[in-house]
């Protein structure tokens, strides 16, 4: 449980990236500078940090609760549900932008929660095994995808474009409305995961062993999956599905030396902040005058980073 040198580096790097990020970009105009800084750059970095931290910590917790290194925040169908919700809303004629009500956000949130409730409900049922729940998550995702494809086939070109734009993930913000809306949901996720940290630690020995060590396994996994899903649903609803973050960051944190789950989840939260903020920087800068969708960058940056770490002999030692 010792915080190793590499872990410290991870923490400092995140602090440096998040602190520096708003400074990166073209020089600020004296007239509009204050607006650009406080209403565009800072909220965007804050949003990237919150979303990155949430997706990563939920990913770490899901990998622990499923005892499966391939689990991600969307394993239980959250992202698929959100995409389906948006598709349904767009096909039903919801405006893609509205001053009064963010219809797409609401539809995504409803879709994400609907799929998750099915899977988390199964998790709360005592006799279900963890791989049953994993399978249920995959089944729900596939079903949502199939219904989505059916809806897409009746959508017109404009509607399809709206959905495809939304599903690439986006972090730009004007002001702090998004941050204020998201924070309560993210707080539910973070508190839920922190409350169950010790149970997640015990679950590394398997569900039966954890049960005999005193863990109320159905409750622990329902709280972890449920609280995590609330946070992820909020992130996906506001920013669209941003892939790879929740899969890759926990593995990078493990390779950096965080062995115990009691360290892994909080460190993934911190490292995820740094990771998504840096991905967003790359998305802003790599093509001058044009912004890439951040989801493209997370995959393009994250996958090689993970491969590099896996191949790095020092990181593999002692595993």
């Amino acid at each position: 449980m010792r915080v190793r040198g590499a872990t410290l580096v991870l923490l400092l790097a995140t602090a440096a990236i998040v602190g520096m990020a708003p400074y990166v970009g073209p020089p600020l105009d004296p007239e509009t500078g204050s607006f650009v800084w406080w209403q565009l750059r800072v909220p965007r970095v804050v949003m990237a940090a919150l979303v990155g931290g949430t997706l990563s910590s939920v990913g770490a917790a899901y990998q622990l609760v499923f005892q499966n290194p391939l689990a991600t925040p969307s394993t239980i169908g959250t992202s698929a549900g959100a995409v389906l919700g948006v598709l349904a809303a767009v096909v039903a004629g919801a405006p893609s932008t509205s001053a009064n009500l963010p219809w797409l956000t609401l539809a995504a949130f409803a879709g994400a929660l609907a799929t998750t409730v099915i899977v988390a409900g199964l998790a709360a049922y005592g006799r279900a095994r963890m791989h049953d729940i994993l399978l249920a998550g995959i089944a729900v995702s596939l079903a949502a995808g199939a219904v989505g494809t059916a809806l897409e086939s009746v959508a017109d070109v404009g509607q399809r474009f709206t959905v495809s734009q939304w599903s690439l993930g986006h972090l730009p913000q004007v002001g702090y409305r998004g941050v204020a809306i998201l924070l309560p949901f993210l707080a539910v996720a973070w508190i839920g995961l922190l409350v169950e940290l010790r149970a997640l630690h015990a679950l590394t020995g398997g569900e039966d062993v954890a049960q005999t060590q005193g863990v109320d396994v159905p409750r622990a996994r329902a709280v972890t999956l449920g609280a995590g899903a609330v946070g992820v649903a909020a992130c996906v609803a506001w920013c669209g599905p941003i892939g790879f973050v929740g899969l890759i960051v926990p593995h990078v944190v493990r390779l950096a030396g965080a062995r115990s789950p009691r360290v892994l989840v909080p460190l993934s939260l911190v490292a995820g902040m740094g990771f998504l903020v840096s991905c967003d920087l790359v998305a802003r800068l790599v093509v001058p005058g044009h912004e890439l969708p951040v989801g493209v960058v997370t995959a393009a940056l994250g996958a090689p980073a993970l491969l590099l770490l896996l191949a790095w002999p020092a990181a593999r030692r002692g595993r």
Binding site: N68, A199, T204, G205, G206, Q213, R259, S260
Partner: peptide, 24 residues
């Protein structure tokens, strides 16, 4: 307390971390 016949641990942990989990 129970020692199962085949124990498996899903995370790369130290021995101390593994034993500490039993103190839930």
């Amino acid at each position: 307390a129970w020692l199962p016949q085949t124990g498996s641990v899903s995370e790369p942990m130290t021995a101390a971390d593994h034993v500490a989990a039993a103190r839930y």
